[in-house]
Amino acid sequence: MPHEVKAVISREKNAPVAVETIVVPDPGPGEALVKVQACGVCHTDLHYRQGGIGDEFPFLLGHEAAGVVEAVGEGVTEVAPGDYVVLNWRAVCGECRACRRGRPWYCFDTHNAAQKMALTDGTELSPALGIGAFAEKTLVAAGQCTKVDPEASPAVAGLLGCGVMAGIGAAVNTGGVTRGDSVAVFGCGGVGDAAIAGARLAGAARIIAVDVEDRKLEWARGFGATHTVNSRGTDPVEAIRELTGGNGADVVIEAVGRPETYEQAFYARDLAGTVVLVGVPTPEMRIDLPLLDVFGRGGALKSSWYGDCLPSRDFPMLIDLYLQGRLNLEGFVSEKIALDDIEEAFNKMHRGDVLRSVVVL
């Protein structure tokens, strides 16, 4: 029978969110019902609330979540009731051209639950990134559930569901950072700091954090930055070159998503170096680079979508590294809050006061 639970709803563009009762169906074929234990407040949720990701209001927000599977539908074999899982928004199909070529992290046909969750009056909800986890329970495709070690607390495990995975993956999967590399990261919010943590895990010798706020640069040091540059008063390209023997960094990760910082990242890399764009731009943004520079500097210009991750491979590995004390996931949790504190959490995020507020249910 359907489940009535409390959830955070965004009814219209730029309006404050509210906690309301919603109806969650029992899982159908290929679906799983998950009792949410914790969910991070990600900037993507704010984008939904602001109307920056479609206009299919009302939205059921939340997607960086961990919880326990309560029930599964027909044909589900990958998870079972009682499994502790991190939710992901890329349930790979296994059949598209990317999956058939052995590159499922590029899956072109990811899927979500077929059934819709709804308000009590029957109005269908659009779940953020196909998850909708600012809720006591949510319905997802079974492939969106990745089993991990239950020793990891939900407040930290759920962060792998989006921002932390995006940053770590940008460094390790997309950027290919390896032992001895020099790495520069533009933007030291949650994603940028995760990229710094990923570079550290990969054995980078020099990790240069760039931001306009000293407080964020101090956070970056806590995740492994060896040098910091406040670009409000210092040319970051020149500073990075000075810190790398005049050459530029081997891998430069842009975690802001703006044309001006991307251009700085482009010129801050070494010849044949790699630039990774993981910051999310807005539709109107454009970049203008001399084509001769693109050709003459060689290397690679890449974009990183979800850190080019494969959840079934990457989530359990990163949780294991966390439990071994090698990955500081706790450092990303600025505060733990309740469902009705999310609007204020958006305000703190906008002001740059937090890396992550985490809703604990």
Results as ranks from 00 to 15, higher is better:
Val68Tyr: 09
Val68Gln: 09
Val68Thr: 15
Glu70Arg: 11
Glu74Phe: 11
Glu74Lys: 14
Gly75Pro: 08
Ala80His: 13
Pro81Ala: 09
Pro81Asp: 08
Asp83Met: 11
Tyr84Gln: 01
Val85Ile: 07
Val86Phe: 02
Asn88Tyr: 03
Trp89Phe: 15
Arg90Glu: 09
Val92Cys: 06
Val92Lys: 05
Val92Gln: 04
Gly94Cys: 13
Gly94Trp: 14
Glu95Lys: 13
Cys96Phe: 06
Arg103Gly: 00
Trp105Cys: 00
Tyr106Leu: 15
Cys107Ala: 10
Thr110Ser: 09
Thr110Gln: 10
Thr110Ile: 12
His111Pro: 07
Ala113Arg: 10
Gln115Lys: 15
Ala118Lys: 15
Leu119Lys: 11
Leu119Asp: 11
Asp121Glu: 11
Thr123Pro: 03
Leu125Pro: 11
Pro127Arg: 05
Ala128Cys: 15
Leu129Gln: 14
Gly130Gln: 08
Ile131Glu: 13
Phe134Leu: 07
Ala135Arg: 02
Lys137Met: 15
Lys137Ser: 11
Thr138Gly: 12
Thr138Ile: 12
Leu139Gln: 13
Leu139Arg: 12
Val140Met: 08
Val140Asn: 06
Val140Gln: 05
Ala142Thr: 11
Ala142Lys: 07
Gly143Phe: 07
Gly143Ala: 10
Thr146Pro: 01
Glu151Arg: 14
Ala152Asp: 01
Pro154Cys: 09
Ala155Glu: 15
Leu159His: 05
Gly161Pro: 01
Cys162His: 07
Gly163Tyr: 05
Val164Ala: 06
Gly167Gln: 04
Gly167Glu: 03
Gly169Glu: 03
Ala170Ser: 10
Val172Arg: 03
Val172Leu: 02
Asn173Cys: 07
Thr174Cys: 01
Gly176Cys: 08
Arg179Met: 12
Val183Ile: 05
Val185Ala: 09
Phe186Lys: 05
Cys188His: 04
Gly189Phe: 06
Gly189Gln: 06
Gly192Thr: 02
Ala194Met: 00
Ala194Leu: 04
Ile196Tyr: 00
Ala197Glu: 09
